[in-house]
Design a protein around this nucleic acid. Structure first.
Length: 260
DNA sequence: AAGCTGCGCAACCGCGGAATC
DNA sequence: AGATTCCGCGGTTGCGCAGCT
């Protein structure tokens, strides 16, 4: 525990990990007086912490509705989707994951997603990695969610819409995307998902080559065994050994690590 | 058993914008 | 209206732990 002294004033501030006693003081104070106005809260509560530190401790750890534990596949999917739309706007993303903090989501992204990008030896913002997320990771999450027992229809609907939106965004994206939407899922301009496009809009796959037709801006080669399945509510699939991005055909082998 | 390494996570820092004085 | 303080966000750091050698 470090103590910071500021000038002539005897304003010693504690830093580092919070103690149980400090937690209790903060929780009790907020229970009686509410949160907000963090600097004065810190002073009145008798905590030798900055207001920022108190706010962070409350929001990220002590708040009663904070959810802890593993990020579920549903949450993973949502994080991938929302990050593709908004980038590193963690607090905005966190608003859509009840109980999860921006800090936790940010940590998840850095430790898991960026790790995967590193394993693929590509930048997390690269086309290659976005392809992997779009065509492999997210569909597999969707499949996994669907396969799991007890998935509510509402949840399924959300991800079916979500999945459809990826397709819609990919197929309808113009050659000059808006500044807001530099992501690969740039089709949605509002917070609500678009309705799935009609089946007639689905690009055809040349079974001999695996090349997608239609108005896809980039071809996506599927190796034998790869598949696109639009029958069961807008999902995609691909298998180990799939090739992505014809301009840089590469094979990253077994993708089983993508979902852990 | 000890040292090393990588991971996950809590906490801090710097900055920009909003609110207050 | 300008200065100061506060708040919230995103980036970064560092610690503890588990697994590996």
């Amino acid at each position: 525990m470090e103590v910071v002294l500021h000038g002539d004033e005897e304003m010693d501030l504690r830093r580092g990990p919070w103690t149980v006693e400090e937690d209790l003081i903060l929780v009790n104070y907020i229970a009686n007086h509410g949160d907000g106005r963090w600097n004065s809260l810190a002073r009145h509560a008798g905590l030798k912490r900055t207001g920022k530190s108190c706010r962070l401790r409350w929001l990220n750890y002590l708040r009663p509705d904070v959810r802890r534990g593993n990020i579920t596949p549903e949450e993973q999917l949502l994080i991938l989707e929302l990050h593709s739309r908004w980038g590193n706007r963690w607090s905005k993303i966190a608003q859509h994951l009840p109980g999860r903090t921006d800090n936790e989501i940010k940590n998840y992204w850095r430790t898991r997603v960026q790790k995967h990008a590193k394993q693929l030896q590509c930048d997390v913002n690269s086309k290659q990695f976005k392809d992997v997320m779009k065509y492999l990771w997210m569909p597999r999450l969707i499949e996994r969610i669907r396969a799991a027992s007890g998935v509510s229809p509402a949840t399924t609907a959300v991800y079916q819409q979500s999945s459809a939106n990826y397709y819609h965004a990919t197929t309808k994206e113009t050659s000059k995307p808006s500044p807001e939407s530099s992501s690969c899922f740039a089709g949605s301009s509002s917070d609500s998902f678009e309705a799935p496009p009609p089946l007639s809009d689905v690009p055809e796959v040349d079974n001999s080559t695996g090349v997608l037709g239609g108005c896809w801006p980039e071809q996506c080669l599927l190796s034998p065994g790869g598949y696109m399945d639009f029958d069961q509510g807008w999902s995609w699939g691909a298998t180990a050994g799939d090739h992505l991005s014809t301009d840089c055909l590469w094979n990253v082998g077994d993708y089983s690590w993508l979902i852990d």
